[in-house]
Design a protein around this nucleic acid. Structure first.
Lengths: 338, 338
DNA sequence: GTTGGCACTCGCCCGCGGTGAGTGCCAAGG
DNA sequence: CCTTGGCACTCACCGCGGGCGAGTGCCAAC
C-alpha cells in the first residue's frame, strides 16, 4: 500500500504532466507543489512509484510520466469530477436550447463537447431499442407499393418502402394503420414483435400477404436500425495530440471512421455512471494511446444512448469528466422537454 | 506561348513530383522520361517555365516543384481523365448496389471515394430544392398537434411538428392531406409555394389558422433544409499529406468540420462537368494547400447534388478525376433505380 | 537551338563537445 | 526508519563546423 504522501506525489506528477506535456522531475515537483519535503525524498517516492508501475521514465535520467496504471489510480482515487462553473452551465444550456430537431440536438451536443473539452466528441443517437413508438404511418405510393414511416418518442423517424405481393385497397390500408397504431403506439420497441404477431389473422385472406410483408418490414427496421448511428466532431483537436504526429493520429482517425468500433467502445462502457477507459484498457489497438470518457444520457432516469470524448491519455480528467457529465445532463433535459 | 517540349517537361515534372513527393531535377527527368534531349536543355526549359511561374524551387540549388499555376496548366491541357479499369468499375457497382436506403447510398459513396482516391471524400445529400415531392403526410399526434412528413423523389424524408392554433378534426385532416398531395405530389420544391398559396380559402374559417400553420411549416422545411447536409470520410488519409504535419492538417480538419465552408466550396464549383480547384483558387484560406475535385451527380440528366474529394495539391489528378467521375455516374444510376 | 563542361550554391548529414536537468546512491542527522 | 544534503553520473538537447552531393546557371562549342 502506498503512503499518503506518495499518492500526493503521484497526483502532482499527473497534474504537472498534463499541464506541461513534459516529463516531470523531482525538483520541479517540490517547487510547484508545496509538499513540505525535499527533492531527495520525492526521488525516493518516485522510485517506489516506478517499482509499482504507476510512473515510468521515457529514458534514463529524464523526468517521470504517468503510466496507464498511474492514470487509473489518479482517476479512481486521487481526483474528483470538476463541476462546471455557473457561466459554463448557462452557456451549455443556452447553446442546446437553440436546437430545432433531434439531428440538431445531436449536432450541437457534439460541437459543444468538442469545444468544452478541446477533444474529439462522440455522441450516439438515441437508441431505438430503448425507445417507444410514437406513431406508425402507412402511405400508399402506388397500387402495390407502400411506404412505412416509424416515429419514435425521441423524434427520430425511419422510413421503408414496402412492395406488396398484391394490390392493397385504401380501406384495408386505413384498417391496418389503425390496428397497428392501437397496438404499438406508446409501447417499447422490444415489445413490438410480440404485439403484432397475430395481426394478419384479423384480415381477409387476400390481404394477409401484404400485412405480413408490412409487419416483417417493420420488424426489420427495428433490428437494422439497432445498428445505431453516431456523430463525431472536434477532430481538429487531434492536432494537439503530441509531437510524434502521424503515427499517433492515423489509427485514431481510422477508429473514428469505423462507427462499428466506436459503438462497441461506447457499448462496452458501463450502463450507469461515467466510464473512463485509459490507454490499453481500450480493446481497439488504434486507441491504445487514448482515453475514452463516456456516460449514458436519456430523457428520464434511464439512459437511451451514450456520449463521450476521445483524447490523449494525457488529458485533464477531472475537467473532461465534469464537462461530459454536465453535457449529458443538459441533453437529457432537452430530450425530456421535446 | 510555351513550346511543345516545354509542356512535356512540365508534365514530366508534375508526374514525378506527384510520385516521389520530392523536388525533381533536370537529370532525374531525362533519365525517367525519354525526352530525347540532354539535361542541359531541360535546364533551359525549366528556367523558362520558372520565369512563367509554372514551377518554383523551394530553395536555391534544389529541384523544382510545380506551382498552383503549373498544376492548373497540367490539368487543363496536359492530362486527361484516367478512366477506371473494368474491374474497378465492377467493384464500384457491386459496392453501391448493396445500399438499402439513401443514407446508406451516401455512406457507401463516401467510403468508396475515399478508398479509391486515398483522399478525403465529401458527398452532398441530394438537394431538396432540385427534387420533387413524392408525398406529403399529415399525422395527428394529439388534438392540436400534427406531424408533417415530407418525402422526396430521392427517398429523403423530413419531419416537423406542428402546433395548431385550434383543434383540427380527422375529417379536415384527411381533406387537407388529400388536397395538399393532389397539388404538390410530383412537383418541384421550388414550385410548391405558388401551388399552395390559395389553399386556406378552401377550408372553413375555423380551420384556416391551422391550415396556414401547416403550410408555413411546410415552406419553412423547404427553406431550412435547403441548408444541405453532407457526409465526409477518409480523413485518415490526411496523414499522408506531407512532412510539415500539424500546420497543414489542422486547418483542413477545421474546414471539414465547417459544413458551411464545404457546402460553399461545392456550391461555387460549376454546375455541369467536373471542377478542379487548385490551392489558392480555393477561397477558404485553410484549404490553400489543397485541391478540390468535384462534380455534380443526379438521377436523370440533371445534377441534384455534388460530390468530390479534398487532397493535397500534389495529387494524381487524372486518377482522382477518373474516380470522382466514375463514382458520380454510378451513384446517379443507383438513385435513378430506386 | 542543343550540348557538354564547369564552378558554385546550399540543404542535408554527421560527429563533436558543452550544458543542464534529472537521477541513484550514500552518509549524516532527526 | 524516514528524511536530507551532497555528489557523481547519465544522457537528451543544442549549436557548430566540415564534407558530401544533387542541382543549378552560365558559357563556349557545335
Amino acid at each position: 500500500m502506498l503512503s499518503e504522501r506518495r499518492l500526493q506525489v503521484l497526483r502532482a506528477i499527473v497534474q504537472d504532466y498534463v499541464g506541461t506535456e513534459e516529463p516531470v522531475g523531482s525538483k520541479a515537483l517540490t517547487e510547484r507543489h508545496n509538499l513540505g519535503v525535499s527533492p531527495a525524498t520525492v526521488r525516493n517516492d518516485m522510485a517506489a512509484l516506478e517499482d509499482e508501475g504507476y510512473i515510468a521514465q521515457p529514458h534514463t535520467s529524464a523526468g517521470r510520466i504517468p503510466t496507464d496504471k498511474g492514470y487509473r489510480l489518479f482517476v479512481d482515487k486521487l481526483a474528483g469530477v470538476k463541476p462546471m462553473t455557473a457561466p459554463e452551465r448557462r452557456a451549455i444550456q443556452n447553446f442546446l436550447d437553440g436546437a430545432v430537431d433531434l439531428d440538431d440536438v445531436v449536432a450541437r451536443t457534439v460541437r459543444l463537447l468538442a469545444q468544452l473539452t478541446r477533444q474529439v466528441a462522440v455522441v450516439q443517437y438515441p437508441s431505438l431499442t430503448r425507445s417507444t413508438v410514437r406513431h406508425v404511418e402507412l402511405l400508399s405510393l402506388a397500387p402495390a407499393r407502400l411506404m412505412l414511416v416509424l416515429i419514435t418518442d425521441t423524434g427520430r423517424v425511419e422510413q421503408r418502402m414496402v412492395d406488396c405481393p398484391a394490390p392493397f385497397g385504401e380501406t384495408s390500408l386505413a384498417d391496418l394503420r389503425a390496428r397497428l397504431n392501437s397496438r404499438v403506439a406508446g409501447r417499447r420497441f422490444t415489445d413490438v414483435p410480440r404485439l403484432v404477431e397475430d395481426l394478419p389473422e384479423a384480415f381477409d385472406v387476400e390481404d394477409r400477404g401484404t400485412v405480413s410483408t408490412v409487419l416483417s418490414t417493420l420488424l426489420e427496421t427495428l433490428v437494422e436500425e439497432n445498428e445505431e448511428r453516431l456523430m463525431i466532431g472536434g477532430t481538429a483537436n487531434l492536432t494537439r495530440f503530441g509531437h510524434d504526429f502521424p503515427l499517433t493520429i492515423r489509427p485514431v482517425l481510422e477508429a473514428l471512421e469505423e462507427q462499428v468500433v466506436l459503438l462497441k467502445l461506447l457499448g462496452e462502457a458501463g450502463d450507469s455512471g461515467m466510464t473512463v477507459r485509459i490507454g490499453h484498457e481500450n480493446a481497439y489497438e488504434g486507441l491504445n494511446s487514448t482515453s475514452v470518457v463516456s456516460v449514458g444520457y436519456g430523457s428520464g432516469g434511464e439512459a437511451v444512448a451514450k456520449l463521450g470524448v476521445v483524447g490523449p491519455t494525457r488529458m485533464d480528467y477531472p475537467g473532461t469528466m465534469g464537462a461530459v457529465r454536465a453535457v449529458a445532463r443538459y441533453v437529457g433535459q432537452i430530450l425530456a422537454e421535446s
